[in-house]
Each structure stands twice: as C-alpha cells, then as structure tokens.
Nucleic acid binder design. Structure first.
Ligand SMILES: [Zn+2]
Ligand SMILES: [Zn+2]
Ligand SMILES: [Zn+2]
Ligand SMILES: [Zn+2]
Lengths: 134, 134
DNA sequence: ATCTAAGTGATAATCATTGTCAAAGAGGAG
DNA sequence: CTCCTCTTTGACAATGATTATCACTTAGAT
C-alpha cells in the first residue's frame, strides 16, 4: 500500500548533493546554489524534490516568522526533535527536550483538547556570526 | 521618544469590537465579520488596525502551518505566554510554562548562541468541536 | 472657515508556492 | 533497435495572503 518511492533522477540527486552543504535555507536559496553548481534544474522541480524528501523524512522543515519555509537535510531521521537555528547563516543544532512531549499532551488533556500537536523552535545567532558582527 | 499612539477611529473601534467575539482568526475572517456587522471598513484598514494592535500588545498573533497569520484579542497583556489553540474553531487557551523560558536561554547558551528567541505553540481539537465531530 | 497631517479604501504590486501542460526521458515488450 | 507507456521535467501561468500606492476624506488645530 505504500506508494513506490520516486525514481532517483539526476535532478533529485543534485538536490540531495547541494543539501549536504548544510543549514536551513529556502527553496529558492537551494535552487540558486544548484544553478551556481551547474545544474539546470527548474525551481518547480526543486520544490517537488524538497517536498518528496520532506515526506520521506529525509528533510526537516521550519517556518520563519514571515511564513517562508526553510529546508535542511535531516541528520537524526528517526527521532522526533526540535531545532536551534541561526537567523543569520542558517546553521542549526538538533535539540531534544523529552519532557516537552509529555507536557504538551498533558496540558492539552487538562483543557479537554484532543489530537494535540506542538511547535517548539529556538532561533538565535551562532557564535561565528556573532563574532563576524552578524 | 515613543511614537504617539494612533488615533482611535470608527474603523479601529469596529475592529476592536468584532475581536471581542474571541478566537484566533485570519485578517480576512475578521474583515468578513466586520462587513457582516455592517461596517464598511476596507481589508487594508483591517490589516493596519490588527498590525497596530499587535504592536501595542493588545492582540496576539500565531502563524499556521500554511504561513497564514491569525489574530486574537489578547487577554493577559502583560505576561509573555503561549497558546493552546483549537484547529477547528479558533478557540484558544493561554498557557504558561515558566520553565521553558529559562530552558530556551540555557540551551542557546550551551550551544554558543546569543539573542535567543523561541516559539512554543500547541494545537488540538477542543472538546466542543470533538463532540460535534470536528 | 482654512489649513494640515493622519487615516481610509479601492486597487495594484509583491512574493513564495502550486498548478498546468507540452516536451523529454526511462524502461519494457516485441 | 523501435514502438509504446508512464514518469519527470521546466517554462510559465495562477493562486492567495500580505503590502504598497495614492487620491480622497476626516479630525483637529489655527
Ligand atoms: Zn550563524
Ligand atoms: Zn516535540
Ligand atoms: Zn474548537
Ligand atoms: Zn515563552
């Protein structure tokens, strides 16, 4: 019943390769980097690849305060986790706070809510960027 | 040095009134409700009023997973807090988790990040909506 | 009444993201 | 290899929330 995984094409391989540069970046950013590296992949294809990789759990996404989606190659695929992200350069650390998971569920139950979901994200400025004056 | 607060106009009063209906709703939703109540306020004016009210701390905002901004009259203006929101009807409870504030700062410091900010939001389905089958 | 700066609302512009669709590419069968 | 079929691609249009414009109105002040 699980859909067959999409075929690995030249474009998707290129997306995966550029993602290894690391950091949370927008689809357009990743697309720019691909073109810079010689790929001719279209923007729509990059969006499709990122969407597919997100669905399979190979890519993490976060939403900025402007509603833009940022994508990053996921390092700890199996575990649910959260991020501490540098607002200046896109670098990010995986963080986990096991107690938050249970806290979210119990707060929801206390108020009579079901199907609880939660969002926990931290942003800041990493030490490198702070040294460079942002 | 603080900018003079914007004048209280008929339109802003109308926005404040309709906001008392409660719940987190989009700017367009609030605009529809205003028109339904007889106001002729334009959509741009509603956006401006919501923005101004947000700046003064009279309105809370939250970002949906689709990047849409939702606005709600703020009940506990002075305290920094987080929300448990019903995805079906927009109802929301203020929640606070004082330990999260310190945790965010210390996790940031551990990783060498400065200027830490954080997002903690819960969503679910409230008991009324659950009874009504969503 | 007159002047002036702020506020309004219809509309156009912006911008990330998604939809469309004809053309290109990859397999498979013959 | 050739023909057929299904997937993927990429240029481009469409969407939808938000913001910018700008001529017009309004609320105070003189
Ligand atoms: Zn950085
Ligand atoms: Zn979690
Ligand atoms: Zn509800
Ligand atoms: Zn907080």
């Amino acid at each position: 019943m699980t859909d067959a995984p999409p075929r690995m094409t030249k474009q998707r391989a290129a997306v995966l390769t550029v993602l290894k540069q690391g950091g949370f970046r927008s689809a357009q950013d990743w697309h720019d980097r691909l073109r810079h590296d010689g790929s001719t992949a279209g923007l729509a294809t990059v969006y499709r690849a990122l969407q597919a990789l997100t669905d399979t759990g190979d890519v993490d996404t976060v939403l900025t305060e402007t509603g833009e989606t940022l994508y990053r190659l996921c390092e700890a695929r199996e575990e649910h986790h959260h991020h501490l992200r540098c607002r200046a350069c896109g670098a990010a650390e995986d963080i986990d706070m096991p107690s938050i998971e249970g806290w979210a569920a119990s707060v929801g139950a206390e108020h009579g809510y079901s199907r609880i979901d939660h969002t926990v994200e931290l942003t800041g400025v990493c030490s490198d960027c702070a040294k460079a004056g942002r």
